[in-house]
Design a protein around this nucleic acid. Structure first.
Lengths: 117, 117
DNA sequence: CAAATATACATAGAAAAACTATGTATGCAA
DNA sequence: TTGCATACATAGTTTTTCTATGTATATTTG
C-alpha cells in the first residue's frame, strides 16, 4: 500500500471550472459524482474534489448558460446529468486554451535560470 | 502596438507564492517593485502583479520565516529587499516540485481523449 | 442483522487568496 | 504642473474552494 500525497488545495483555484468543462467536452454528459471519480482517477488520487466545491461550481456553470441538465433515475437513485451547451462548448475551447498558455508561462518562470551551478 | 491579453486573475491563485519564492531563489535578493517587473517581463505582460497581491504575500512569507528583509536607500527612495532564509530555501524546493507535479496532472487531464475524431 | 461504506444530491458558513481602491512619497519627463 | 514611473503599505471586497452538515438509497462487512 502506498500514500498519494494530495496537492495543496489552493492550487486547484481557478482551474476547477476548466477541468469540469473539459471533462464534459469529452463525455457529452456526466453527473456530479461521476465527475469527482473521474478527476480522482485521472489525477491518480491527487485531486480529491469535494461536493462543497463541485456542486456550487456546476450550479454556477448552469446559471451562466454553459451547461444544461437532465435528471434520470438509476437504481432508485437520482442522477443529474450535465452537458455542454453551444455556448459552453465555445467557452471550453477558450478556457482550455488560456489555461494551456498560463501553464506555458508558469513553466517558463519555473524553469529559467536554475542559479549559477 | 499590440495587446497582450492578461490571464484571468483566478489562475494565479495558489501559484503566486511559489513564483515569488522561485524568483528569490534565483536572485538572492529582490525588492517588491522589482518582483512585479520581473514577473511582467517573464510572462510577456500576461501576469501583472498588483501591489495589493504582492505586499501581503511578501509579509506573509516573512511571518512564516521563509524570507527575511533588509532596507536600503537608493536615490532617496526606500527599498525593502527580500531574501530567502534556509527554511525558505527548503520550502521553495518543495513548492516548486509540487507545482510541477500539479501541472503534469493538469496537462494529463487537459490532453487526454480529445473526443472521437 | 447492524454498522459502515459507497452512491448521489444539496447548501450554509468559514477560510484563503488575489483584487480594487486608496494613501504616502520621490524623481523625471512632457 | 501634470502625469508617469518608482516604491512602499493596507482596508475592504470578491471569488473560490473548503468543512461541515443534511437527506436518502444500496451494498458490503463484521
Amino acid at each position: 500500500m502506498y500514500m498519494t500525497t494530495m496537492y495543496s488545495k489552493e492550487l486547484l483555484k481557478g482551474t476547477l471550472t476548466t477541468i469540469i468543462l473539459k471533462l464534459l467536452a469529452h463525455n457529452e454528459k456526466m453527473y456530479g459524482y461521476e465527475i469527482t471519480q473521474r478527476v480522482k482517477l485521472l489525477s491518480e488520487g491527487k485531486i480529491l474534489l469535494k461536493e462543497g466545491s463541485l456542486y456550487p461550481a456546476l450550479h454556477k456553470l448552469k446559471n451562466e448558460g454553459l451547461v444544461d441538465t437532465e435528471k434520470e433515475m438509476v437504481d432508485n437513485r437520482m442522477r443529474k446529468y450535465y452537458y455542454l451547451t453551444e455556448k459552453g462548448n465555445a467557452s471550453t475551447l477558450e478556457k482550455v486554451n488560456e489555461l494551456n498558455q498560463f501553464i506555458a508561462t508558469l513553466q517558463h518562470i519555473l524553469i529559467t535560470k536554475p542559479q549559477t551551478s
